[in-house]
Nucleic acid binder design. Structure first.
Lengths: 339, 339
DNA sequence: CTGGAGAGTTGAAATGTTTCATTAGGCGTA
DNA sequence: TACGCCTAATGAAACATTTCAACTCTCCAG
């Protein structure tokens, strides 16, 4: 009767001598079935090696048991920490987490979103390549619970969780100023990345509030936020005439900062005496760098956890209101910037 | 007629004035339907915003379109590179990839595997906490295509993809010997990890073949393969009496090596003059360390890609044979070990 | 005895696809 | 005109589950 097929509820029912409905009850509402029958059914399940077919469950029940996170860049540990936070929240809610990676390519992002829609996931968390892309509108319109992570969306017609980047920019520069640096660099780009723009904005604000001259905040744009770009920025820094050369550098993320750190040490400079370095994100490797890296910490796991809670609220609470959650960044001072 | 529901093939069929079967054909075998009808159906789909329900498809077709990778440790970039390799292969085969993370906890691993079974994924790739755990047997017995990644399984009743760790151990130590080090340390653990044992074995082999004394290969066991443990090993290293202190250290992975590097520089030693360091894996951050790290490279993405191909072969090819694929590691010499 | 409540169990309907045997219609040939 | 062939389209069955109204017992109060 089974001849090779993987067993179904029907087979279990037959083996236990009960009806389909009872087997289903054992799985979903064990309290309504008597101890005797429950035991019998469970034994049959174990003997047959029954594994519930999730597709059929989902088709009938209309509800899936998975969340999804579409991350922006798998090579940046920051996003894995965010994912970890989401995972914990999902675990608490007894859901699975589907992790996809767009690798900053809009086409991949669309492919992933399309698949997730087909899977009817309960909710989607995403750090989008472009938070204003129209295909995100599509999702909201479709009614799929959606939370933007680590970005904000202009229209604000969906939830988002991010960090106050303007404040982050202020904190980083303020720290360098406090350490007595008269001329500092801001390293990051492309400026089209909303975060870079905001961190730079914060940097400029506080710099002027402290009464410094705008031309003493040197902006070194990069093409991406990678270690390699950090190294290249380091080379450009050395190339500046000594009297225009900053003594402190604030990088828009830790990968850039690590690249800069490496290039600086490699070319014989002493950190922080010749150059003080401040990063952003406070990834695991920041503390583990040769000269431990000062960084503006984002609460990475918290970000993920909060995002997951928002998406769950949207999925389950009928009078859900969209929220723009903003976390406060915080300075973690280490050797790379302290005299 | 739709009143809020998400549209189904039936709705599309009605809107386009054709039958269910025709709509299905448009999606799955467009060549059998006439251009006129196809167009009409496609228009209807677009207008209704139809998205195929994957659960229903899978239920009927009996086949899912996803692979899964259960990774061992989300905080180690090595596994993300492996995952990336799998993802590329999955992309080529037009499959989705489900990424789970056991975080080295056997219970989580089991939960994930159970879920994946319920989802009826096409195949499972896993870097298991313990490659000999009985629940992996279960999977093979069930007939789920299974590939062990970066480990080998004694019984060899399933495919695996790994790197020749004994050879890796030889390569690392041979390099240190060539650089003229007379006394070296092996740092890694716990030894119950098969890989650690094999790398150590290779290290010992070559050390003796080169005519060195066994007691000049100092083993410093660690409790885990993390940056923190690397730092702690560094402290123990300093604690050794000068005449017993190694001048070169071979770490069982890069995280350990980075921790050791940091601790060494922090306590004023010069790398590589006071201590030469060799890591294992060659993760992205190895090259980006303050003193670029010499490492025994594993072909990380290739590992993933090959594993995915094996699992696909097992899933689709009826006369699939299980294989134990072994890649050859290779030395990448950088500043941390070169005088 | 009868009636009713409550606990436990049943079985049919429903979910959204794909598949496949069947039918319809058009066209050329005998 | 009758026949066969080919291309398109059809619609019912099947997939594995959940749900729910209906049914059967058992037990106890009246």
């Amino acid at each position: 009767m089974l001849n090779g097929r993987t067993p179904s509820v029907k087979d279990v029912a037959a083996a236990a001598g009960v009806s389909l409905g009872t087997v289903s009850n054992v799985m979903n509402r064990p309290e309504v079935v008597s101890a005797r029958t429950r035991e019998r059914v469970e034994r049959a399940m174990a003997e047959l090696g029954f594994v519930r077919n999730e597709s059929a469950r989902q088709l009938r029940a209309g509800t899936s048991r998975t969340l999804a996170y579409v991350m922006l860049d798998g090579s940046n540990p920051f996003f894995h920490d965010v994912a970890q936070g989401i995972e914990y929240a999902a675990e608490d809610a007894d859901l699975s987490l589907f992790i996809c990676n767009s690798n900053s390519r809009p086409e991949r992002e669309e492919v992933h979103l399309d698949r997730l829609l087909q899977q009817r996931v309960q909710g989607i968390l995403i750090t989008p390549v472009n938070p204003d892309a129209p295909h995100l509108d599509e999702l909201s319109k479709r009614g799929v619970p959606l939370v933007i992570v680590d970005r904000v969306r202009r229209g604000a017609d969906c939830c988002s969780v991010s960090v106050d980047d303007v404040l982050g920019g202020r904190i980083g520069i303020e720290h360098l100023a406090e350490q007595g640096h008269e001329r500092v660099a801001f390293i990051g780009g492309p400026e089209s990345l909303g975060q870079v723009g905001e961190r730079l904005q914060g940097a400029r604000e506080i710099w002027e509030e402290l009464g410094r001259r705008p031309e003493d905040l040197v902006v070194l744009p990069t093409e991406a936020m990678t270690v390699a770009e950090g190294r290249s920025a380091g080379e450009r820094l050395v190339g500046l005439p000594a009297r225009r050369r900053p003594t402190g550098a604030f990088c828009a993320n830790d990968l850039l900062a690590l690249g800069l750190l490496q290039q600086s040490i490699g070319s014989g400079r002493h950190i922080p005496d010749d150059l003080a370095i401040v990063g952003f994100d406070d990834i695991e490797f920041a503390a583990a760098a040769a000269v431990p890296l000062t960084s503006v910490r984002q609460p990475r796991q918290e970000l993920g956890r909060a995002a997951a809670q928002l998406v769950l609220d949207e999925a389950t609470n009928p009078d859900h209101r969209h929220q723009q959650l903003s976390f406060t960044p915080e300075l973690v001072a280490r050797a790379s910037s302290r005299r």
